[in-house]
Amino acid sequence: MKKKRILIFGSKGFISSSFITYVKKTNYKLIIFDSKKYNLLKTDSIKKIQRVVKDQDIIFFVSAIAPSKTFFDFNRNIKMLLNFIDSIKKKKIKKLVYLSSDAVYSDTKKKITESSKTVPTTLHGLMHITRENLLFKLFGKKTLVLRPTLIYGKNDPHNGYGPNSFIRLAKKNKDIKIFGKGEERRDHIHVEDVIKIIFNLIKKNKIGIFNICSGKIISFNELAKKIIHSLGSRSKIIYLKRSGPLHHLGLRRFNINKIKKNIHKIKIMNIRQNLNKNFFDTY
């Protein structure tokens, strides 16, 4: 039986590299488009891509300049997507999977569902919702949009504020700096769970919008304290004066019913239970 093909655009990111490792162990044929050979900012990549893409291909589009903080980055991200669309619009692809972000949602203290209001407060969120709308307009019911929350795991190259940074600092007995009192409560999901969810949604031929999250929240202050305690670290928490308002009103909660309904028996790690010696040894 001929293997189904998954084409991935954007191969060096945290999620894409983890996805590539996972899919290589399955019976799917994986084709990787890297930015060196296929620079989506250049129109000469369009014909190169057209020669590779076939009808019934599954395409996972991850390519982005992130975070998109300036109008220059915003415009380049849209240009990348438009060149990509030009390269595949005449192909009868099976599915278009787009990696978006929870940044598309409006700030709210209510639990966020896939139908929650999308009025982004950042250029990064605006970039993603613009891309989403373009893809839904052109590919309709072939489109699967993924909106992950904060992702953690050992190979995170960004070392962003949160679990990844706190763990690395605590293992070196270095102080952990948090903003304000660290009272913001956020949802964190492990990269392994993210990849399993994405792969299962593709395998089950799902379409539409899915939030990729754990459904559990924890404050940055509790997170830092738990990491220091669990590691037996000599790190101290340094509380920095906050220069602006709390991000996302200090709370970002998600309803995960749609994921549970569409992927039966899915088990998502709880970050509180995950922070133990066996987990830290992977860092």
Rank of each mutant, 00 (worst) to 15 (best):
K141A: 09
F71N: 13
N77K: 05
S219H: 14
E192V: 04
N257R: 01
T70P: 11
M269P: 02
L30W: 03
H229C: 12
A224Q: 09
D34C: 01
S35K: 11
I58Q: 05
K204H: 15
F280G: 00
K54G: 01
Y98V: 07
S230Q: 09
Y283R: 04
P120K: 07
I212Y: 12
K90T: 06
S68P: 01
L7I: 15
S16K: 10
S235V: 02
E192I: 10
K277A: 14
A103F: 05
K4F: 01
F199M: 01
I263P: 07
K24T: 05
I268K: 04
F61C: 07
N276M: 09
T121W: 03
G140V: 08
Y22I: 07
K196P: 00
Y98M: 05
G182W: 11
N257T: 02
I197V: 11
R168G: 02
G182T: 09
V23F: 09
S17H: 02
K48P: 13
M1R: 12
I268A: 00
S233L: 14
S101A: 03
T21V: 03
I237P: 03
F220I: 05
K12V: 08
K109F: 01
V52Y: 09
T21P: 00
N77L: 11
P67C: 03
N83Q: 04
K216H: 12
L201Y: 11
V53G: 10
G10T: 15
I178R: 02
D44T: 08
R242K: 14
V97N: 06
K29H: 13
K236H: 11
K258P: 00
G244Q: 14
T108F: 04
E132M: 07
I178E: 06
L240R: 13
K92T: 06
L99V: 04
S17V: 01
I266Y: 00
H188K: 02
I59L: 09
G180V: 13
A224I: 06
L134T: 01
F210T: 08
D156W: 02
F220P: 00
L99S: 12
Y98S: 03
V52N: 14
G10I: 14
S18G: 05
L223P: 03
R131I: 15
N200P: 07
S45E: 06
R272G: 00
N27H: 10
I93A: 10
S165T: 10
T108D: 00
F71L: 13
A66Y: 14
I218D: 10
S214A: 04
E192K: 15
K241G: 03
I195V: 15
F74D: 03
E183Y: 03
I209C: 01
F19K: 04
H128Y: 09
K110D: 06
I88C: 06
I59R: 02
S87W: 08
G125N: 11
K12W: 03
I237D: 00
H247K: 15
I195Y: 06
V191N: 13
I8N: 04
S106H: 05
H248M: 12
K277Y: 15
N270P: 15
K181R: 10
K265S: 14
L231H: 04
R186D: 12
R147K: 15
C213D: 04
A66I: 14
